[in-house]
Design a protein around this nucleic acid. Structure first.
Length: 204
DNA sequence: CGTGCGATCGTG
DNA sequence: ACGATCGCACGA
């Protein structure tokens, strides 16, 4: 396991969205360590992307961290009750990020299952196991990610991303992004990426 | 200050 | 198909 360096994140957003597939996301707290393998992402590419929170260089308290140098976390709350995790990309001053839509559980299964269902992993049904991290809100719930993680660097110890040896043992599928039908021409941009056949990819 | 809505999820 | 639920962006 090798932690991704700054230069991984400061590249083109769509490239980073593809490259994040198969990488390992780790979250550590007082209770221990949780690790998931990223299987689905979406790119949100700044000023020209009507689906992006930073469209037209919109700068608000919420979008502020999207303009940080690549390599930190952008967390926002949606529908009043869910959080979504993004990886900020490109150079400082550019409002771009990659949404982590789903992942497969690897380590810390009991920590994640308690966060999601208040039960031990071995008490979960097959359906609950499959649904534990297969969506952006569910992933954050499982990992205990909330607004306190906003702006946190992926180069630190609290939340980090690693590469492992077999990272190219899969095929990448491409599609339109989910639930952005309001965004006019941007709704058709093929900026969603996922690992073909992986059971933890969110439905559609 | 008032208002409308959303990069979702679970249930029916 | 629909309701939950509330912070945020924006206009007055």
């Amino acid at each position: 396991m090798e932690k991704l360096k700054k230069t991984f994140y400061t590249r083109d957003t769509i490239l980073v969205a593809k490259k994040l597939l198969g990488k390992y996301l780790a979250v550590r707290n007082i209770n221990g360590e949780m690790i998931v393998r990223i299987v689905e992402t979406e790119g949100y590419k700044g000023p020209g992307d009507k689906a992006c929170h930073a469209y037209n260089n919109r700068l608000t308290k919420r979008t502020e961290v999207m303009y940080c140098c690549g390599g930190c976390a952008y967390i926002y709350q949606i529908y009043g009750m869910h959080y979504c995790l993004n990886v900020v990309t490109e150079k400082k001053g550019v409002g771009t990020a990659v949404l982590i839509r789903s992942a497969e559980p690897v380590k810390g299964l009991n920590l994640m299952s308690f966060n999601r269902y208040n039960k031990q992993w071995n008490q979960l049904s097959d359906k609950e196991k499959n649904n534990i991290t297969n969506g952006p809100g569910k992933l954050c719930k499982a990992l205990g990610i909330d607004k306190n993680f906003n702006g946190e660097s992926f180069l630190g110890e609290v939340i980090s991303i690693y590469r492992f040896r077999d990272e190219n043992d899969f095929e990448i599928e491409t599609s339109k992004r989910i639930n952005i039908d309001y965004s006019e021409e941007a709704r058709d941009f093929m900026w969603r990426f996922y690992i073909r056949g992986n059971p933890y990819v969110s439905k559609k």
